[in-house]
Write a protein that binds this DNA or RNA. Structure first.
Length: 872
RNA sequence: GCCGCGGUAGCUCAGUGGUAGAGCGCAUCCUUGGUAAGGCUGAGGUCCAGGGUUCGAAUCCCUGCCGUGGCACCA
């Protein structure tokens, strides 16, 4: 890699005699070419500079850019350009999350090749993205469906397989009947597939899985170190991982012939004396054993299975149970027997799939106990309650209190009783304190062809055998046929037939492919050197990682961000990475919304099909074609189904890229939703023109020498301070608001007929302004820079600095309050002492008049801000 | 049910103890060789409601109302 970019011929500013209006169609492509010719955004490892890695979540190549993309990438570009100007060595790459179902669906519907379809989409979308004028190092671009990428993914997959972090398990999985594939728990939302929206079914399949649960503790603990992540996302991940601390112990059966016991997990060992029954899940092994000799039990289990086809149904189902007739002994009192029930509300894959129930202090247990007339024994006494009189009604008591009715635990608070109960169980040898997680292992098998092939073979003799690394990559066959449902890779006539690397006999390739979330779990590391022979170039990764600022949608708060954190830790443990967290800073941007429009019959109407008339403060819409009145609805996320999308290309064409960027950045704080409106983008467009007008009116000849106008100079320094701080804190909209305001200051100090002092101050102001506006409207900034005779290009220029002494006004206007109400104002020198301010106040005739007949009790002077006189 | 976030001008939002602000929209007027435009001026606010703290509350505290996001039979 070479160092400094070669100097290039700058384009000249557009000729003012042709038109004075700003012409983005002329200027924008010209500057993109200039940046590209100068290789201005090449990321270079430079140990003399601080590094900064900016990354936006890479897009799925749908083939069409939407406003959400514009916002996402514009946000990242502001940071990247800002950091570059501030002297950082910046890495800002781009790639494509290119495997996945849409390509396969297109292949099936239209008989096209998914690979060709995907690369065509990438080509089209790359052109659109480049049009945005992003400061991206395009030399690092790759797609996850490039064999050069997924082959390396296969390589580290084999490492994890060897390390025991990837394994095969027969399990009940979430089956998406529309996408014909398995989904991870995280990918099921409200019982429906996250992409297809189809009701998810339960199926038993042999699956590849990754041991994310091995890292559950670390994934929780390390959230604390992510201090530049939104609190909200950390909370969501913490809830998802769901660590709980409690007790795992074994009940002994009353039947002396049974010596195996029944393991349960509880977070409330303090309530053991309130135990009423023991419950097991319908698919617990003990339930199956009982069903084998008890037809009624078998029928009950079958009923549970049938009634629980989908996640959504499980959650709303009524609690039902079956008394198995088995009895277990209470661990603290062997003469106390508890019945064992099979219950539909107990989950097999959480804890041990079995519980002890304390109905008095758990709502689910209480509902069940009331239904089946089981005992309800309170053991936690709420503060101030009489132990004789206290009873449990329809609500379990889960608050604090004192333990009673509980033998050796009596009189303790809940925490002390938990510790004491765990200690006693451990002494008895019946169990131990345990930490349990809600998180399950990550099922990564997908029964689809258009994904990363899993590099193993199945041999009748040797079983599952890993493909040797030198045989990688395992690529897709070139002649894959789509058109039927199911896995086209599995249906290919020859691809899966191979020989066993171990015994040389005939074997079958694995035809499942990896979940596309695997692809996006390490791409940020590959970007540090996309051409490396190894999956990750350690030296490059050590320089660039972690990602300093990651930007994307909140919808990935759990899925993608959790998987990427896990893979980073797993690869670090294989010695491939030094960092244990991939993203030091995370920013989740809001959606782009738009008004919705409906006809009388309820049909959605596109914004382009209607005409809006403003009458005073009300707006009315009619259909252009027929004049039919149209209902203006709420603003909602832009979507095809509601027909409220706006095509970025049309906006670029009408107003230019800069105006579009400016508007999505200026409208609202980046983390909130942003409302797209035509009038809004028109306002941004007017701003672009007014900025150009201001620069264009500045005389080109050398400015006179002398002192600058102090007020304009102070305003300039204040502006630099404000915009710098706004970008640093992600308040782009307020940074832009300051630029809008400053333009009004410039207009109040026009070049035409200006004094020498103003002309000198204007020169400094415009120079700063061009660089301050550059992260938002980079093309316009370059054009303005040329117009005022700036050196080089703005992308090469340093960020402006400010003199703190010049950001404060020399004379302060202080409002004067009498009894908290504003009654006038005085001016005082900045930093004036309270005693001096008092004198000025007392000398003010208007204030004196207000105070006539009143006795002054107290005068409060807040330096440089306000004066309040308390009088009666 | 649990945990968040929000409620300030017609709209989108700043301001988070100290004079209620910006952009857009709206109105008046001007310009008509920047013209499918530009400019001047202006109107518009119980800062969701009630209570508290304070010399002073949009801002801090309490209660409630409304909207919105996430989690939710996880023992």
């Amino acid at each position: 890699m070479t160092g400094s970019p070669t100097p290039v011929q700058r384009p000249t500013a557009m000729a003012p005699q042709v038109t004075r209006r700003y012409n983005p169609k002329d200027s924008e492509p010209r500057w993109r070419k200039a940046w590209s010719d100068a290789d201005a955004f090449k990321a270079v490892i430079d140990h003399s500079k601080p590094k900064y890695y900016v990354l936006e979540m890479f897009p799925y190549p749908s083939g069409r850019l939407h406003m959400g993309h514009v916002r996402n990438y514009a946000l990242g570009d502001v940071i990247a350009r800002f950091k570059r100007a501030r002297g950082f060595s910046v890495l800002h790459p781009m790639g494509w999350d290119a495997f996945g179902l849409p390509a396969e669906n297109a292949a099936m519907e239209r008989g096209v090749d998914p690979k060709g379809w995907t690369y065509e989409n990438i080509a089209r979308m790359r052109d659109e993205l480049k049009q945005l004028g992003l400061s991206i190092d395009w030399s690092r671009e790759f797609a996850t469906c490039d064999v050069g990428y997924y082959g390396k993914q296969q390589a580290w997959f084999l490492d994890l397989l060897k390390a025991g972090l990837v394994y095969r398990k027969e399990s009940v999985v979430n089956w998406d009947p529309v996408d014909q594939t398995v989904l991870a728990n995280e990918q099921v939302v409200d019982g429906k597939g996250w992409r297809s929206g189809a009701a998810v079914e339960k199926r038993k399949l042999n699956q590849w899985a990754m041991r994310i649960t091995d890292y559950a503790g670390q994934l929780t603990d390390d959230l604390k170190t992510l201090d530049r992540w939104p609190e909200k996302v950390r909370v969501m991940q913490e809830n998802w991982i769901g660590r709980s601390k409690g007790l795992k112990f074994r009940f002994q059966f009353s039947d002396p012939d049974r010596t195996d016991g029944l393991d349960v997990y509880t977070t409330r060992p303090d309530t053991l004396y309130g135990a009423s029954f023991v419950g097991i899940a319908a698919d617990h092994p003990l339930a199956a054993e009982i069903a084998a000799r008890d037809p009624k039990a078998a029928a009950f289990i079958e009923q549970c299975r049938r009634g629980a086809a989908t996640e959504a149904e499980i959650e709303t189902a009524e609690k039902i149970g079956y008394d198995t007739g088995l009895r277990v002994k209470h661990p603290f009192d062997p003469s106390w027997e508890l019945p064992v029930w099979i219950a539909n509300f107990i989950l097999m894959d959480y804890g041990t799939g079995a519980i002890f129930a304390c109905p008095a202090h758990d709502q689910r247990d209480l509902d069940f106990a009331r239904k089946y007339k089981l005992p309800v024994l309170p053991v936690v006494l709420p503060p101030g309650e009489d132990p004789q009189a206290h009873t449990i009604g329809d609500e379990a008591y889960v608050g604090p209190g004192t333990i009673y009715n509980s033998g050796f635990l009596n009189g303790m608070d809940i925490e002390a009783a938990k510790a004491a109960a765990i200690a006693r169980i451990e002494t008895q040898g019946d169990g131990e304190g345990a930490t349990v997680f809600r998180l399950r292992d990550w099922g990564v098998s997908r029964q689809r062809a258009w994904g990363c092939p899993i590099p193993v073979v199945h041999c009748a003799v040797c079983g599952v055998v890993a493909v040797p690394k030198h045989e990688l990559p395992i690529a897709h066959p070139a002649d894959i046929q789509f058109g039927k449902s199911g896995n086209a890779l599995d249906q290919h006539p020859t691809w899966k037939h191979t020989t066993c690397p171990a015994c040389g006999g005939p074997a079958m390739r694995e035809t499942d492919t990896l979940d596309t979330f695997v692809d996006s779990s390490w791409y940020f590391a590959r970007f540090t050197n996309p051409d490396a022979a190894e999956p990750i170039d350690k030296a490059a990764a050590d320089y660039w990682l972690p990602v300093d600022q990651y930007i994307g949608g909140i919808e990935h708060a759990v899925l993608h961000l959790l998987y990427a954190r896990f893979v980073t830790k797993a690869l670090a443990d294989q010695g491939m990475l030094s960092v244990r967290e991939p993203f030091a800073g995370l920013f989740t941007q809001g959606m782009v919304t738009h008004e919705t429009y409906r006809r009388q019959n309820g049909d959605w109407v596109e914004p382009g099909e209607i005409n809006i008339v403003v009458e005073g403060s009300t707006r009315r819409a009619t259909l252009i074609a027929s004049g039919e009145p149209v209902l203006i609805g709420d603003s909602e996320k832009m979507s095809k189904s509601k027909r409220n999308t706006v095509a970025p290309e049309e906006i670029f064409d009408a107003y230019g890229v800069d105006a579009a960027r400016l508007f999505v950045l200026s409208d609202s704080p980046p983390e909130r939703d942003s409302l797209w409106s035509t009038s809004g983008v028109q306002g941004a467009w007017r701003f672009v023109n007014r900025v150009w007008d201001e620069f264009d009116s500045q005389p080109q000849d050398a400015p006179p020498s002398g002192e600058p106008d102090r007020d304009l100079q102070r305003a300039t320094h204040k502006l630099v301070k404000q915009v710098t701080e706004a970008i640093d804190t992600f308040r782009f909209n307020s940074g832009i608001a300051r630029l809008y305001e400053f333009l009004n200051v410039l207009k109040a100090n026009p070049a035409k007929g200006a004094s020498n002092a103003v002309l000198i101050a204007r020169k400094e102001a415009l120079s700063a302004f061009a660089r301050l506006v550059a992260p938002f409207t980079p093309h316009l900034a370059e054009e303005c820079w040329v117009r005022i005779g700036g050196t080089g290009m703005v992308v090469e220029a340093a960020w402006p600095t400010f003199d703190p002494a010049l950001t404060e006004d020399a004379v302060k206007i202080l409002p004067v309050q009498v009894n908290g109400k504003r009654r006038g104002e005085i001016s005082a020198p900045a930093g004036a002492e309270p005693a001096d301010v008092e004198k000025i106040v007392m000398a003010d005739p208007e204030i004196a008049q207000r105070l006539e007949g009143l006795t002054i009790r107290k005068i409060i002077v807040v330096k440089d801000r306000i004066v309040n006189i308390v009088a009666a």
